[in-house]
Design a protein around this nucleic acid. Structure first.
Length: 309
DNA sequence: TTGTGTTTTATTGCCTCC
DNA sequence: GGAGGCAATAAAACACAA
């Protein structure tokens, strides 16, 4: 494995730099605003030394933390392996501003920044690389947040639509029951008043007991399906996390609302029974079918689809 | 003080582009 | 083939609760 890419210099170099630095420190007694090289050279704890790029000693920013105990620190430093040294707040602030301007680093700018901050060009490059990584992570978080908000809104819309659909369905069931009840009463009247006539055409204007039985069975099926729908809905939202991860994986929020195979077969079954009811009603009560269409459920346009809402 | 989690600096290996 | 970018990772520095 290759050794460290950054070279921090040898002991002799450090010693000489240290002495020179002490003199320089006094000349940087007052800090300049951020952006001035002097502000980086006199602050923080960053240690960076070595004649990289043949730079002048005064360009280096290792000058910090050499006030007291410098001999001890030097000893300590010389006996420890190279360690990471954090950039000063000013250096970071300067780099941040530079990053805001342009998050890519051309060689000229890299060298310029390195000179101004008293760092090695390699350190500047590494800082920008890590900064870009952090920026991408942040972007990802923001994107996720936006996607989640969209999903929440869609979910709320979906819940409202399902509720609306349930209300409408309940109304249809209620109206159908009322209608059948009326038809039944009408049929009973016809039986008592004009018995002979009804004997001649038993299917006209009266309810067949067998049909009545069929209707109640089918009505029970409709109610059962109504309840089943609720359980399907809860299933959909129980798997919310799965759906969300699917959205993220596929980048397609519509996926959450596509019916799966079981929903489809249930719909088919539902439609079959509804159509059966409609057919029975139509066969036995031609007038009833036309009456139903008067309630706003087209019969002919969609076959027996007046149940579809 | 110490254990632990987070952030920052730096390395490595792979990939792409010129 | 070298330079530079990126993802993954290591490890030092730092923050903070117990």
């Amino acid at each position: 494995m290759a050794g460290p890419e950054l070279f921090y210099g040898d002991a002799a170099g450090f010693n000489g730099i240290l002495l020179q630095n002490q003199r320089l420190m006094s000349s940087f007694a007052t800090k300049e605003a951020v952006g001035s090289p002097a502000s980086f050279l006199a602050s923080g704890s960053m240690v960076s030394f070595g004649g990289v790029n043949g730079g002048n000693i005064s360009d280096r920013s290792f000058f910090q933390s050499v006030e007291e105990n410098e001999t001890d620190e030097l000893e300590e430093y010389l006996h420890q392996p190279e360690k990471k040294r954090r950039l000063t707040a000013d250096q970071v602030q300067f780099l941040e501003k530079s990053f805001e301007v342009e998050n890519k680093l051309e060689p000229e700018r890299k060298d310029q920044l390195a000179k101004e901050l008293g760092l090695q060009p390699r350190q500047i490059a590494i800082w920008f690389q890590n900064r870009r990584a952090r920026w991408r992570t942040k972007q990802l978080e923001n994107d996720y947040e936006a996607l989640r908000n969209k999903y929440d809104n869609l979910k709320a819309d979906y819940i409202n639509l399902v509720k609306e659909k349930d209300d409408l369905r309940a109304q249809v069931i209620q109206f159908t029951d009322m209608l059948l009840h009326k038809e039944k009463e009408k049929g009973e009247l016809a039986t008592s008043d004009i018995k002979e006539l009804s004997d001649a055409s038993p299917k006209e204007n009266m309810i067949d007991p067998v049909l009545e039985d069929e209707m109640s069975t089918l009505s029970a099926i409709a109610l059962k399906q109504h309840k089943d729908l609720n359980s399907v809905k809860s299933d959909v939202f129980d798997s919310e996390n799965l759906v969300q991860s699917s959205i993220l994986d596929q980048g397609d929020s519509s996926y959450a609302f596509e019916p799966d195979q079981s929903d489809l077969s249930q719909d088919e079954e539902e439609n079959l029974s509804k159509n059966l009811v409609a057919k029975v009603v139509h066969d036995h009560y031609p007038m009833t079918s036309s009456n139903l269409s008067c309630f706003g459920y087209p019969v002919e346009d969609q076959g027996f689809g007046f149940w579809s809402f």
